[in-house]
């Protein structure tokens, strides 16, 4: 895996006004990079701003503050039409709810070909059909499915149609916004394996948003843990699972159930209490170990360093 970063996010903030004086800080100062060819897992509890982060990166929302650089270009900067189109082709998204992400009035062929139509990637109907058939095959569906409507498919099949739609414009970066949370466990593996295979074949980079830690560990190279709009810990997947430092990460890890009765009987859950933190100063995002970042104050920083050294 090369260490060339594809996406750089610096101090990204996304605040929503909910009233005259109340503001929800959905994303509050994010900093991280995503390297070319890797899968970056983003985890955290419901409502911590994971999806908002994804949607802000792809310009569905305008960022309140901060920058997103994609291939060195500012995503939120002013763009003319052709630049915007180029950007839209480079970055794509897979959505959470397979039942809401496909237009019920459109045929599968038209859903998948929508990107091609918008960007004028095909010259005639025959070519369009061929490309759609190729994409359907890529995601493991039948050619015959092109003439059908979304309601005729199961959740897993729909999600694969969603993936085919994203692939239609040949993106290099895909944001997967909880692509498997709405699926049955047996289907989750199907979709995740498909994504892994596509990554190998097409050299894709993923931002994988999820709250299922076991699945995230399986697919991700690096994992970032979010809590209330802030990144609290970021490390390689193995490192994070072995040496979690931030109490919130520990709490999350302790909540993973395993289908093993002996383990389950002895499993102890840590409850995370935000008031346990050192409040002498504003916490900052610091590199505790190599490529292992934690949100901490100076005191905690020393403490974590020692902790990491003893392992």
């Amino acid at each position: 895996m090369s260490q060339e970063s594809l996406l750089e996010i610096s101090n990204l903030k996304q605040h929503f006004k909910t009233g005259r004086h109340s503001v929800i800080k959905a994303v509050d100062g994010l900093n991280f990079n995503i390297y070319k060819g890797e899968t970056f897992g983003l985890v955290g509890e419901s409502g911590c701003g994971k999806s908002t982060t994804g949607r802000t990166i792809i310009r569905l929302y305008d960022a309140t503050e901060g920058e997103v650089y994609f291939n060195g270009e500012n995503v939120h900067g002013k763009k003319d039409k052709s630049e915007l189109k180029k950007f839209n082709r480079e970055m794509q998204m897979i959505f959470q709810d397979p039942y809401a992400s496909l237009n019920p009035r459109m045929k599968v062929e038209d859903i998948i070909a929508e990107g091609m139509d918008i960007h004028g990637l095909v010259e005639n109907d025959k070519q369009r059909k061929e490309k759609v058939h190729d994409l359907l095959e890529t995601v493991g569906l039948d050619q015959e499915h092109a003439n059908r409507y979304p309601h005729e498919f199961s959740g897993g099949q729909r999600q694969r149609i969603g993936i085919a739609r994203a692939l239609a414009v040949d993106p290099s970066f895909i944001i997967a916004d909880e692509p498997i949370s709405a699926l049955d466990v047996s289907i989750q593996a199907q979709v995740v394996n498909l994504m892994k295979q596509l990554q190998r074949d097409k050299e894709l980079t993923y931002l994988f948003i999820a709250h299922d830690l076991s699945m995230v560990k399986y697919i991700s190279d690096r994992i970032g843990v979010m809590y209330f709009g802030k990144m609290v810990e970021l490390a390689d997947a193995d490192e994070l699972y072995k040496n979690a430092l931030h109490p919130y990460t520990k709490s999350l890890l302790s909540a993973i159930p395993l289908p093993d009765p002996d383990y389950e009987r002895s499993r102890v859950r840590f409850n995370y209490d935000p008031s346990d933190h050192d409040t002498s100063e504003e916490p900052e995002f610091r590199e505790v170990g190599p490529d292992h970042w934690v949100l901490c104050t100076t005191n905690e920083f020393e403490h974590y360093k020692k902790q990491l050294a003893t392992v």
Binding site: R55, Q96, L102, N103
Partner: peptide
């Protein structure tokens, strides 16, 4: 989400409305 998907594909407003 299907409308958002269309927007991320770069669909202009009138396409979103029409289709």
């Amino acid at each position: 989400e299907f409308v958002l998907a269309s927007k991320t594909l770069g669909a202009p407003d009138n396409r979103v409305l029409r289709k």
